[in-house]
Nucleic acid binder design. Sequence first.
DNA 1: TGCCAGGCCCTCTTTAGGGCCTT
Length: 207
Amino acid sequence: MTLSRSADSVVVLDFETTGLSPNQGDRAIEIGAVKLVNGEVVDQFQQLMNPGFRVSSFIEGYTGISNNMLRTAPPCNEVMDAFADFIGDANLVAHNASFDQRFLDAELADIGRHYTGTFTCSMLIARRLYQHAPNHKLGTLVDFKHIEHNGVFHRALADSEMTARLWLVMLEDIKRQYNLHTVSFELMMKLAKTPKAKIDTLFHRYA
DNA sequence: TGCCAGGCCCTCTTTAGGGCCTT
């Protein structure tokens, strides 16, 4: 049962894409991910991919990924096939996971691959844990929690690394605040869906 | 042709609207 696994053994991932919705024809242009085992980074994945059409100037400016960089990148199907091998049966974390899940589902469906892990969302959890943060954008939370970073934003590996560090900080904050020795992935999934007024009740059931 | 995301979450809510977050 994958949900009973410790929450510090997951794959944290981030997509850069041509836009906001695969239903509108948008495609992935970069995937970045780090694999955590017992809270340590044991592997990482980063690859640009050619979506088969030119990306907008907005996306070039937003991500720093140019059409020239994508021209020589391997196609999405090759990259996503390798990425499906990378994630294996791990549980998955992303910041605003509904976005990344839509693209992962769409790109893997294109090549007939599947994953067996379960997604949860660092943003939904951060909204519950850090209700006094200025906002819950990834970059803001990294500053709010004084998490080290290299200044690179909106690139897939850099964002997945920052999300992973935020994830581990949230686990430590939960353990300290609620006096827990371990935190399961299932507990984090429940936290992401628990109304703010009932968070203490949730943790007391696990204490 | 013209349109164009989608889910969460709050509130002056639930017969709804709008901000937040992701690219």
